[in-house]
Amino acid sequence: MNGQGILKGMLVTAKNFFGSYVSRERLTTVSYPEGGNTIKEQSRNIPFLVFDGEDPVAGMRCTACQKCEKACPPQCIFIEKDKDERGKALQRPKVFDIDASVCMGCQICVEVCPFESIWMDSNFELSTFNRFEGLQFNREKLLKSNTYFHKIHPQQAQASDDRLAEKERKRLEREAARRAEKSASEPQV
């Protein structure tokens, strides 16, 4: 009880007090609005839908297969298939809602989606004044361009583009193979 422990402890706090003026390592707080924010490349928050080209609805990759709706643990995704004028089902969601207040950003929908159409956004400033209009993201709010995707997640975007290109090439090969095989079978007849 003879006070040495306490004095040693006081020395440590003194070192930190003067250290915080000197070394960056001892002063780690970042003043948020002015200073930088430390968003990493992989950080994820609320999902968004990717579209290629200019027109959001036409270039949408999502084909409304509703896999993500089934796999989402808190079930916060709601999809309705689109119908053209004659009532034939289209490979596109008319309504694609995500309830941002329920979504916990677990990225399962991204893993389940076979068409690389839904990815996680890293924008975290989502506060709104109204819980219902503000946080119910409808299709227009969710659709973001591929360039935006390349801006926030360069590596992931590049990887998904390669996979899509790969799939495209395989499809073309199959196409060519089928055409070749059809043309081969054609002459015998």
């Binding site: 706090t13 915080s20 003026y21 002063l27």
Partner: peptide
């Protein structure tokens, strides 16, 4: 301010 600096953070600024 002092407690802030001891705890490696800015005090009120």
């Amino acid at each position: 301010k002092g407690l802030g600096r001891i705890q490696n953070r800015y005090g009120p600024n």
